[in-house]
Design a protein around this nucleic acid. Sequence first.
DNA 1: AATGTTGTTGTAAAAACTTGCAATAAGGAC
DNA 2: GTCCTTATTGCAAGTTTTTACAACAACATT
Lengths: 123, 123
Amino acid sequence: MTPQRHAILHVLRHEGTHLSPGEIYRKALDELPGLTEPTVYRTLEFLAENGLVRSAHTGSGRLTYEIAAADHHHLVCRICKTEIEVEHSLLVPLYQTLETASGFKNLDSHVTFFGVCPKCQTT
Amino acid sequence: MTPQRHAILHVLRHEGTHLSPGEIYRKALDELPGLTEPTVYRTLEFLAENGLVRSAHTGSGRLTYEIAAADHHHLVCRICKTEIEVEHSLLVPLYQTLETASGFKNLDSHVTFFGVCPKCQTT
DNA sequence: AATGTTGTTGTAAAAACTTGCAATAAGGAC
DNA sequence: GTCCTTATTGCAAGTTTTTACAACAACATT
């Protein structure tokens, strides 16, 4: 655990929500001047591989990171970008089906679904 | 339908598989010299919104595009990147649950799941 | 203590992607 | 046909993300 990794983890823990690499970089810079962008990207990748943070896809194909907590997924409104969390328990049946059907194991516990939220359905 | 859109659709139809925006740009350039990168990105977004192509997330959070065909999803091996298709029918129960639980509608029919394929499980 | 190995970082540059804006083309109203 | 509106494109510049590589620190071996 290097100072860089601590700083980035601290930012994510403190913010509590998911942030883009750029946002993380700017915030972590306050804590650790001299930190560079490539390090942030590499560190986030490292932390994600080791289960300390989670990455989530945004609609536009960029990654966003948040501190690892209880397994959950995201459901994002395509129109207004409102976002709600989905409990992992809802996916368990699907995951069992997928594992049986494909032979794959260890399926990712952080998927982002897109749809249209109740508010935007009426507009 | 502009020449740009035709060229890009043609590339995707011809290749049959999913490609990155950069690959699409380089291939479409042969068909339509003068085509520019921003146009490719904007066109892909447009075609995806109108259901002519589909975008899929890669592990690293980039988008990849393929010609729209029967609804399906992807299951990608985190280790060796092997990729298999998952029929949409397997997700139908989950989607019904999600829609009931959240009020969201019109859930996206192109999700990418990550896991470890049978081959890589033994290694 | 000296050496070698491994892993992490910063630097510099490249590649990928996005944005704002002016020019152009296409279609509708009159 | 002319004018107006809307949509799409290319250009130029910006931002974000990735890559290659050299320097450095930590640690094990001898």
